[in-house]
């Protein structure tokens, strides 16, 4: 475990906890895309199947349980909680996320490391995670005003992916550990998706103005 990997996991943990705390405390999910949250729950459900078969470390298992629990809790809050669900912007959160799931499923069937159910689902989760943020980015552009917690959430997610790329570079040079090119490319695509958000987030922070994304 290197510092980039640990920092990446902690940033990822912070992003989901920021979101869960926001929804739990102010009982509102304004600006949050349910579609993106459902996609993340699916990403974790299909990636962490090995939690019962392969034991890697206590850290690994605990983090997987936290990510599974928090992502499904967020979906439950937005779908089922009698107060939170009222602030869900159904009309604006219209990204057809099934159009993301199917291509990722097909791509996983075409390009994978091993043709086993567990490995196919794992590969599917890698592809899906790369595009899962799209409904949220679209919603942010539509609603234009970004309340700072949602902005921080997206920022932390982007930071977690950037740190993972540094982690892969570090592991390549130190452990001669080769991240499979599937992981590398999907991770790179995902990080690039955040690039323009980062630009506007940094600009707003520098000019000390409210974050506005161009339509």
């Amino acid at each position: 475990m290197n510092i980039f990997r640990l920092a990446g996991d902690m940033t990822h943990l912070a992003s989901v906890l920021v979101l869960l705390l926001k929804i739990h405390t102010i009982k509102s999910c304004a600006g949050v895309s349910l579609k993106t949250q459902e996609l993340y729950a699916l990403v974790f459900a299909t990636r962490y199947l090995d939690i019962f078969t392969d034991f890697i470390s206590v850290y690994n298992t605990v983090m997987k349980l936290i990510f599974l629990g928090s992502s499904f809790s967020i979906v439950w809050y937005i779908r089922r909680h009698k107060i939170v669900r009222r602030s869900y912007d159904k009309e604006q959160d219209t990204f057809r996320h099934y159009f993301l799931v199917l291509p990722c499923l097909l791509l996983a069937l075409l390009i994978h490391e091993k043709f086993t159910v567990k490995e196919l689902l794992w590969t599917f989760s890698i592809y899906l995670e790369a595009v899962a943020i799209l409904p949220q980015l679209v919603l942010l552009q539509r609603t234009r005003n970004i309340d700072n917690l949602t902005g921080q959430y997206v920022f932390l997610l982007g930071a977690y992916r950037s740190l993972y790329i540094l982690n892969w570079i570090y592991r390549y040079f130190t452990e001669r550990h080769f991240v499979h090119w599937i992981t590398w490319i999907a991770g790179l695509v995902q990080t690039l998706l955040y690039a323009d958000f980062f630009y506007y987030y940094f600009e707003s922070w520098k000019n000390n103005v409210k974050l506005q994304l161009p339509a």
């Binding site: 990997r5 090995d50 890697i56 997987k64 091993k114 794992w122």
Partner: peptide, 10 residues
């Protein structure tokens, strides 16, 4: 599973 698991990252 047998041997080193395929994926050790989250």
């Amino acid at each position: 599973g047998l041997g080193q698991p395929m994926h050790d990252e989250l």
